[in-house]
């Protein structure tokens, strides 16, 4: 291996080690300075926050939580939450190293949410929408019965009120702790999308960092329009599983938004600052009255 290749491989390795978009870790929040994972710049936290949690120096997108997403995307004071008090049960009485109930409690304390999704209605640059935002910090944004049920109810509400549906995904996949019930949420949410189609309701999915597994294999990829947020990674199987199965090195851009754009799996990549207007414009373009 020549020096040039060695440097190249080092660089690629560094790219792989770095999260595509990492969350501001809890204890960093409230700190005055934030270090960018990409360019290493030390930035005033306030400046990063005011820039939609995107690094002002290099454009690196920090991961944001569901509440912050709603704040960024929805018009001021327009968001009304639905089904906020829907919570999970523990149908399998599941226990691994910790009981599922304890993991739920932990996640609830951490995120101040009942489960891994917020749904509601509101406006995006003046356009009325039914919207759902997944919360990755709640057990990896995993889809159990509550996520499936809230998405189904949101879609039913959208049909009733004739609202376009926008869903921001961020999920590791189905929630193992609810076993087969989680798997069935994939069928349930897909059935709900078929009802949206029947009623000619516009459905936009925004795949944000990261979107994998059961969400990719159900409502996540069933949007009439699929937007990938800049810097997001997505796919069906996780990188590690694929590496273990095929035992070969994966391309360094594997499963990035750019990779899936190139392979025709998403309609467009959108940076965070353009997201709001892009969605609003798409809604207007599809609202022609005959």
């Amino acid at each position: 291996m020549g020096l040039k290749e060695w440097l190249q491989s080092k660089k690629e390795q560094k790219n792989l080690d770095r999260p595509a978009t990492a969350a501001l870790i809890d204890d960093e929040v409230g700190k005055l300075w934030t270090k960018c994972y990409n360019c290493g710049a030390n930035l005033p936290s306030k400046e990063v926050e005011e820039n939609l949690n995107v690094c002002p120096k290099c454009g690196y997108h920090f991961r944001i939580n569901a509440t912050e997403r709603i704040k960024q995307v929805m018009d001021l004071m327009s968001f009304k939450e639905t089904e906020a008090n829907l919570g999970s049960v523990d149908p399998l009485n599941f226990k691994d190293l910790k009981p599922y109930k304890a993991r739920q409690k932990e996640a609830q304390n951490k995120t101040k949410l009942n489960d891994a999704i917020i749904t509601g209605t509101g406006k995006i640059n003046g356009e009325s929408v039914a919207v759902a935002v997944m919360e990755f910090a709640f057990m990896g944004g995993s889809m159990g019965s509550v996520v499936g049920e809230k998405i189904s109810r949101l879609m039913e509400l959208a049909i009733n009120k004739k609202l376009p549906v926008v869903i921001f995904t961020s999920s590791g996949g189905a929630r193992m702790q609810e076993g087969i019930f989680s798997l069935m949420q994939m069928a349930k949410t897909s059935c709900a999308v078929s009802k949206l189609n029947e009623n000619k309701i516009l459905y936009i999915t925004v795949l944000t960092e990261p979107t994998f597994g059961g969400v990719t294999a159900s409502f996540g990829t069933l949007g009439d329009i699929i937007i990938a947020e800049q810097g997001a990674r997505m796919g069906f199987a996780g990188r590690r599983v694929i590496e273990q199965t095929i035992r070969q090195k994966l391309p360094s851009d594997f499963q990035t938004a750019e990779y899936f754009l190139k392979h025709g799996q998403v309609d467009m990549i959108c940076s965070r600052d353009n997201l709001k207007e892009t969605i609003a414009n798409l809604i207007r373009l599809h609202a022609s009255k005959k």
Binding site: N85, S145, E178, F181, M184, K188
Partner: peptide
């Protein structure tokens, strides 16, 4: 499939 899953008001 619509009926599958277990949730509660909490």
């Amino acid at each position: 499939f619509r009926d599958m899953g277990e949730v509660k008001a909490s």
